[in-house]
Simulated assay, not measured.
Amino acid sequence: MDLKTENSSSNGLSPDVSLEKLHKMAEDLILPGRFIFRVLNAALEFITDLLGRLLGSCLVRRHFHLVLSGLVLFGPVLSLWVSKFSIFANSHHFLYRKFLKSTWGWTWVFSGSFIILLSFSAQRSLSLSLRHLSRIGVVGVLWWGSRCLLTLLEDAAGTCYEPVTPPQDSQSLASPRPSLLLLHEDQTKASCLRANMVWRGYEVSQDVLILCMCCLLLVEELSVFGPCVLHAKPLQRSPGTPLRFIFLLCALLLVLWMFLLLCLLAHFPSFPSQQLGGALGYLGWKALYQGWYRLRQSWGCPGLPGEGLIISMDKQPHYC
């Protein structure tokens, strides 16, 4: 007995410590974690169910584009009341640098993840998931083509000028002359701005274009979450936590894009380039989600969101 006691004490183990006590201590630590996880999961289910019903309602789907159009048209009026000393009046703000210049990248990642999780959890068909994911690819191709075309038009319709300040003598210091502009030909808008020169010409706001297009895309794609939840309740198949979490992130991304759009219109008004960008974004959404995506699959279209997920493939889905 003395030898065993000496061996246990030499190994640093107390005879009072046992596996049962360690197991009890672990349970005491796990129980609060499980309780917190259940509370967070219940809050996530409540919030996502509420957002799913809101975004899936016919009122939102029918009139969201009208709300967005009103924001683009009358948003610049807010420039009369906003302060020029606001943190959002700085074009180098963190939100502008990290999100505005990569709007399509954020939208593609979050909406694509949502589409894959939703379609694969509903039917577990890889081909169906890829078909629904192709809608985002088509919008990406449309955005890339629009950006290239608008850049070519801006370069063709604009002119680059270099500010030149004439030399002043001692007699003309009291009344300096306005600076002149020296014309530079064969300059693109990008190269002109990189050289710290002045570009003058007609342009379309690509930031407003992609923000409007992404907002309309997110509303269309997220609107099927609510019907999928209602369809899964009788089958005792509630959407998993990863799907609910990515849906919540997409909804927060939609709020962020609308906030950035409002900041651009209020702090950096540019009429009519911003309104033209919003109109082109609306036309792109109208041509795809209200036009081509409603055609039959024989036309090679990927179909509308939710098609083949919550109803059988041989029935035509009902949309608001």
Score class of each variant (00 low, 15 high):
Asn7Ala: 15
Gly12Met: 06
Ser14Glu: 03
Leu19Cys: 07
Leu19Gln: 12
Leu29Ile: 13
Arg34Asp: 09
Phe35Ser: 11
Val39Asp: 02
Asn41Gln: 07
Leu44Met: 09
Thr48His: 09
Leu50Trp: 10
Leu51Thr: 10
Leu51Lys: 05
Leu59Asp: 02
Phe64Trp: 14
Phe64Gly: 12
Phe64His: 15
Gly70Leu: 15
Leu73Cys: 13
Phe74Ile: 07
Phe74Leu: 15
Pro76Ile: 05
Leu78Ile: 07
Ser79Phe: 03
Lys84Glu: 14
Phe88Gln: 08
Leu95Thr: 11
Tyr96Thr: 03
Lys101Gln: 08
Ser102Gly: 06
Val109Lys: 04
Ser113Ala: 15
Phe114Ser: 04
Ile116Lys: 02
Leu117Ser: 06
Phe120Cys: 02
Ser125Ile: 02
Ser129Lys: 01
Leu133Phe: 08
Ser134Asp: 00
Gly137Phe: 03
Val141Phe: 14
Ser146Cys: 15
Arg147Gly: 11
Leu149Ser: 14
Thr151Cys: 12
Thr151Val: 14
Leu153Pro: 08
Ala156Thr: 07
Ala157Asn: 07
Gly158Phe: 04
Cys160Met: 04
Cys160Phe: 07
Val164Gly: 06
Ser170His: 01
Ser170Asp: 05
Arg177Phe: 14
Pro178Lys: 15
Ser179Ala: 14
His184Val: 04
Glu185Leu: 15
Asp186Gly: 09
Asp186Pro: 07
Gln187Gly: 04
Lys189His: 15
Lys189Ser: 15
Arg194Ser: 14
Met197Glu: 03
Val198Asn: 09
Ser205Phe: 09
Leu209Arg: 12
Ile210Trp: 05
Leu217Phe: 05
Glu220Asn: 03
Leu222Ala: 02
Leu222Lys: 00
Gly226Met: 00
Gly226Ala: 01
Cys228Phe: 12
Cys228Tyr: 11
Ser238Phe: 10
Gly240Arg: 03
Gly240Trp: 02
Pro242Tyr: 08
Leu248Pro: 03
Cys250Leu: 09
Cys250Asn: 12
Leu252Trp: 10
Leu256Cys: 10
Met258Cys: 13
Met258Phe: 10
Leu265Asp: 05
Ala266Asn: 11
Ala266Gln: 11
Ser270Gln: 08
Phe271Lys: 10
Gln274Ser: 06
Gln275Asp: 11
Gly277Val: 08
Tyr282Ser: 14
Leu283Gln: 12
Tyr289Asn: 00
Gln290Thr: 00
Trp299Tyr: 07
Trp299Arg: 02
Gly308Tyr: 02
